[in-house]
Amino acid sequence: MALAQQSSPHARRARSTSNVMLWVMLASLPGLLAQVVFFGWGNLINVIWCMALAVGAEAAMLRLRKRPIKFFLRDNTAAVTGLLLGLSLPPLVPFWVSAIAVLAAIVLAKQLYGGLGSNPFNPAMVGYALVLISFPVAMTTNWAEPGLLWENAPGLWDTLNIIASGQQSAVDAFTMATPLDHYKHNISSRTATEVLQHPTFGDGVAKGWEWVNAGFLAGGLLLLWMRLITWHIPVSFLAGLAIMSLAFGSNADLYAPLSMHLLAGGTMLGAFFIATDPVSAATSHQGKLIYGAGIGVLIYLIRTWGDYPDAVAFAVLLMNFAVPFIDYYTPPRTYGHHKPRRGLPGKNQG
């Protein structure tokens, strides 16, 4: 009888990485649904297109790197990267723009750094930032006009055609700037009440956007409840953004109000799905708080005083840079020790 030889522990929880990623995808469904309902089929087409391309690119790269393809594809992380890009990109963005974003994410930001677990930057945000800088017009004007899907958006076939043709002129009839963009560019010459009359804002905070954010918030709460993410990053992210907004932008006639910051952009998607990407985030609780708060603060700074209407990608990438530093200085206090041991060995011993 050959007995199995195994190092302890012998019992294991049945929750694999692929399982975790699957749940992340499922948790994004409410947000995606809201996107489809309010902005048409574009996001759904983007999501499918990006996911398929991401998985394909991952497989090709694994092949080039001579890694087991099936084994790594099964972890579902490439699919999640594709999904996040599909959710973040403008609904009517030309297919080649999203393709460049996906390829940059998977090939450059992930596989060239050594694949899953080795990438210092959030792959999806690398792809997003790249196309945002390279194709600003396509990236800022291809947001679909909000409205219920069955009322005024182009149909599935038309949307597919718009995305596939990649012709900017084809989409002008259905698109407008995002509410954050609109607010920022008009508040200098008008009062808040006047700005808010624009149809993009609707009756609530920002037509459609509020539901999309609510959807991602709901999905995020599901992830929290399932303990797939911890509260630290989303809470400090939102708190950082809110505190900045209350401290500097309480006057709605000068700056976008807090409600708009929280519900009109990519805030909830960023807080619960993007900033929480564990690979490129800080690790300890304290580190996560700093990391999340940093993203929130940077988002406010860039949205308010920067040139870009939204800033989740830049803020996340900037904080990715800071992660190794944060990690060195925020270890928890280990049981039986008086102080956490910060810094590097041999220096600043605590």
Partner: peptide, 9 residues
Amino acid sequence: PEQPCIRCG
């Protein structure tokens, strides 16, 4: 089989 650490924490 062991997969890469994704630093999930």
